[in-house]
Structures are given as C-alpha cells and as structure tokens.
Design a protein around this nucleic acid. Structure first.
Length: 400
DNA sequence: CCTCCACAGGAACTGATGGCGT
DNA sequence: ACGCCATCAGTTCCTGTGGAGG
C-alpha cells in the first residue's frame, strides 16, 4: 500500500519537472511581447522624443484591450529614455499609477505624490482638500525642478472618478505646465476603452489627445506565436502537445486577443500537468486549468462580498430565476433569521446590479404588462459553489 | 386605446469616520 | 477646539416604462 504523502514527496524528489523556467510563464517577466509590438514601440518612442531634446513632449494617449502589452511597451520605452537621460542635467522623474487600484481620486493623487518623494508629513493620506493635494504636487515638481512624466493606467477609471466628484483634475493635469515655471509635467494616459475619449470634456481631449496610439488586438496566430516562444524557453522540449497549444490560443485569443490570459492559462495548465506527474501538457490539462481559473475567480469575489450582498446571493440561490420583488422578500426573511436589520429595496436593487456587473449572476429585464416591470436574476455559477464558500461564514452557516 | 402595475434606476441627501489646517 | 474636506454605505424621493387587461 502506498502512502500518498510519500508518493508526492518521491515525485518531488525525483525532480522530473516539465517546466524548466517558471519565471518566463508570467506575462510581465519577459516582455517578449515587445517583439510583437515593434511599430507601437516606435510610435511611443517617437512621440516622447522631445524629452531627449529637453523640450516638453505632447501628452500621449494609448489605447488597447487588456493583455495587448500596452503598459509593458510604455514602461519599457520610458525606462529606456530615463536611463539615457539620467546622467544629463535634465533627469526625468517617472511616475506610474493605476487608476483601478486606487479607488478614489484622492488616493490616486496621493500615490502620485508618494512617487515624487512627498512624505506622509507633506502629503497626508486623508484630510486635505483635493485642490490642496494638487497644489502640493505641482509645488513639489516646481521646487525640485523636476521633469515629471505621469503614466496613468486605466485612465478611463480616473475619468469616471473625476466626473463623479465634479472636479476637473484631468483638465488641470493636462494644463499643469501653464502653472509650472521650473519643472514640467507630461501625461501619458493608458486606456482599455476606445470610446472613452468621447465622454471627456472637450478641453481635456484637445490637450490629452495630442498624440494617440492604438494597440490592436492579437489574433489567434500571433498568440500562438507568443506562446510557442515562451514554451521553448520555459518547458522541456515537446512537453506541450500541439492541440493543447491550439486550445489555449483559441480560448484566450478568441474573444479579444488577450495574451496575458493565454500565458496564465499556459502556466496553470503546466503546473497541473506537473502535479499529476504527466510528462505532457494535454488538451485536458488546458480545459481543467481554464475551469480552475474560472472557479478561483468566482470564489475570490464571493468571499469579498459584504454580508448583505452575501445574503442577497443566497436569496437568489434559493429562488433561482426570480424577480427583484421575490428576491427582496426572501432576503428580508434571511435577515430576520440571522438577526440583522434589513436594507431598503432601493439598496438591494443596486446591489443586484453590482453583483450582476461582477458576472456571478445575470439579469434580464422583462415587462409583464399589467404586472409591471421586473428584472429576473439567475446564477451563472453553480449553487454548490456558493454553499461551499459561504459554509465558512459563521453567520451564514445555518441558512445555506 | 387607455390604464396602471412593479418595479428600474437617477439624484440628492444623511450620518459616520477619519484627519487635516489654523 | 473648531470648521472643513473626502469618502462610503445607505436612505428618501423621484420619474420613467412595455404591454396585458379592461
């Protein structure tokens, strides 16, 4: 009788691994993506060239779907420029920030400030007026005679935040140079949404969109090529079967050519194969990997929901495919049994559309004539998944 | 052809939290 | 000590609407 623990340890010790270099299997580690983005690299460089001539370049806007390597290319070009300029008396201060990671306008400005070496004391994480934070940023640039380049990733999110708060920070950012006497500020915006420009203030468009570069989607062939290169570097020879490769490319490339997803898929499939002590990555490994990634995502977002969202989800689960009203009364019952105050229906409607946005449920608007208008929701994930995940939650244990 | 249902979903507001400058 | 500011979750009030049934 073999001991499963021993088996695993034996396998690990014998060191038969089909992956020879793990690092290459992360999207950002080897920007071989760059190889496939020659023209775009040139374009980015071209439009930033004035920096080398010590004049301020135009603001730049970069578009492209997720996983097209736009951020990588921009970062690479900028760091090269920085390297080259470092020793001159015209050093560049590179500041990168991702609007999606910062949930608030304030947070974003602070993260920019931190990278300009503004300490806690000079720029507290809360308490100030937005305009005050902005003033301090500009002061720092001016006093330090900095030539700053702000790279703002997912700038469409920033635009949304700005719209919500009614501040015109984007406009002020693009025109900051008019207020600076010693330093300079260049803005590089990166956006997933090709239509986002239309939603902006025309004054912002005219200065931010001075230069525009679009990263087109990878097609399946290109994805395959990228994958092949990485497989050569990171796997033992012939360990990834051709059909498996094709499936990865099809899964990830099919919709919008997401190279990041393709590479993640390859890595997870590889790890799965390895764990099962297979010496080949097969089409089944890929399928399994795809499913596993999907489930992980679901579980993670399920866990991150606040209590009332979880209650709503349970209500939906108990009455799959029912209307907002039904879900709401079920939710109220659940609240009673766990002894929590119920929220208003308005709030629940909003939660429902938030959950819908996360993809765990899908809603369909239907008109029932005299019986009014409702949205019917159903789960897009299995109810087992919900049960399994919420079992761990003490307050929810009894009702799932 | 009109009515009226059962909500959708926008807007403005509230109250709490946390931290600033003066 | 005080007023001010940003943010968040939630509330209050509201207007809008496709079509079954009269």
């Amino acid at each position: 009788m073999s001991d499963p623990i021993d088996d695993l340890l034996d396998a690990a010790e014998s060191g038969k691994s089909i992956i020879k270099n793990r690092d290459i299997l992360h999207f950002t580690y080897i920007p071989d993506i760059i190889l496939h983005r020659k023209t775009e690299q040139e374009q980015v460089t071209q439009s930033l060239l004035p920096i080398l001539k010590k004049s301020r370049p135009s603001n730049l806007l970069v578009y492209g779907k997720p996983g097209t390597g736009k951020t990588l290319v921009v970062k690479k070009v900028l760091s090269k420029i920085q390297e080259r300029v470092e020793k001159s008396n015209f050093p560049i201060k590179l500041v990168y920030s991702n609007s999606k990671e910062e949930t608030t306008l304030y947070g974003l400005l602070v993260s920019l400030g931190r990278q300009l070496d503004l300490k806690e004391k000079e720029l507290p994480t809360t308490g100030l007026a937005i305009s005050e934070v902005f003033k301090r940023l500009l002061n720092k640039i001016d006093e330090g005679k900095l030539n700053a380049i702000f790279v703002i990733d997912e700038i469409d999110y920033l635009a949304q935040l700005v719209a919500k708060t009614g501040k015109d920070i984007l406009y002020q950012l693009t025109r900051a140079n008019e207020r600076l006497t010693q330093g300079s500020l260049t803005l590089v915006g990166i956006s997933n949404d090709l239509t986002f420009k239309e939603k902006l203030d025309p004054r912002v468009i005219s200065s931010l969109g001075e230069e525009e570069i679009v990263f087109t989607n990878y097609d399946v062939e290109q994805i395959k090529k990228i994958l092949e290169e990485r497989i050569n570097e990171s796997f033992i020879e012939n360990s990834v079967q051709e059909p498996a490769l094709n499936l990865i490319a099809a899964l990830a490339g099919g919709e919008h050519g997401d190279a990041r997803r393709a590479i993640d898929l390859l890595r997870v499939a590889g790890e799965l194969a390895e764990r099962q002590q297979s010496d080949k990555v097969t089409i089944d490994h890929v399928r399994e990997a795809s499913q596993k990634m999907e489930e992980n995502k679901e579980e993670k977002s399920l866990k991150s929901f606040p209590l009332h969202e979880k209650l709503v989800l349970i209500a939906i689960m108990k009455a799959n495919g029912s209307s907002t009203g039904e879900i709401y009364s079920l939710y109220k019952n659940l609240c009673k049994t766990v002894g929590k105050d119920e929220l208003t229906q308005r709030r629940i409607t909003q939660m429902l559309s938030e959950i819908e946005l996360s993809g765990l449920i899908s809603g369909r608007l239907i008109h029932q004539g005299i019986h009014g208008r409702t949205k019917k929701f159903k789960l897009t994930i299995s109810s087992e998944m919900i049960k399994k995940t919420f079992k761990e939650d003490l307050t929810l244990q009894d009702i799932v």
